[in-house]
């Protein structure tokens, strides 16, 4: 694997146990990376793959990812499906309601660049990255659950690399 790195710890044996020293940043990032609760935000066919990823065969829960029905409890939006121009402001509103630090995964071609609706469409937003800042792009139409899991692992890696000082700015 090599994708998920271990938390840097210093251990020293003492009589009756061990002493562990690590950085606060590493521990907080470890906790955040392992409990990315995502907002239920399926707007089109990608949501079916998202459901499949959440179900028992691929099992999102083993990454600590639980779905939340409220943006106030979520750390992550997986934008799964076509975002229309009418839906765009709603997506922004949900994003604004989330507590920081917050993350966005753009799942599928539609959220990346309009996908199959790029041409000849009056109603589809050409990429959600001019509505909300996107952390991870997962291409596919729709992406298979393996792709989404890969994207989530990359997001975990990104969360682990965060500096305490950057949290305020994000």
């Amino acid at each position: 694997m090599g994708l998920i790195k271990k938390v840097p710890v210093y251990t020293e044996s003492i009589p009756g146990g061990a002493l562990v020293a690590t950085s606060l940043e590493a521990v907080l990032n470890f906790g955040r990376a392992k409990s990315l609760w995502y907002l239920l935000f399926g707007t089109a066919c990608c949501a079916i793959e998202l459901m499949c990823t959440g179900a028992s065969r691929y099992d999102f829960d083993r990454l600590g990812m639980m779905f939340r029905a409220s943006p106030r409890q979520a750390d992550l939006i997986i934008a799964a499906g076509t975002i229309t121009k009418k839906m765009g402001p709603r997506l922004r509103k949900l994003y604004d309601q989330m507590a920081e630090p917050r993350y966005v995964i753009a799942m599928g071609g539609c959220t990346i660049k309009g996908g199959p609706f790029y041409y000849d469409s009056y109603s589809v937003e050409k990429g959600i990255d001019h509505i909300v800042p996107v952390d991870i792009y997962v291409p596919g139409c729709p992406p298979r659950p393996e792709s989404l899991l890969e994207g989530c692992l990359h997001l975990q890696e990104k969360v682990r690399r965060q500096k305490l000082s950057e949290w305020q700015e994000k």
Partner: peptide, 18 residues
């Protein structure tokens, strides 16, 4: 932006199929 189902409709971010 007008009536998008008319054939001569156009908008700034509307991309026609080449």
């Amino acid at each position: 932006q007008g009536y998008p189902m008319l054939k001569n409709w156009d908008a700034p971010d509307f991309v026609r199929m080449p």
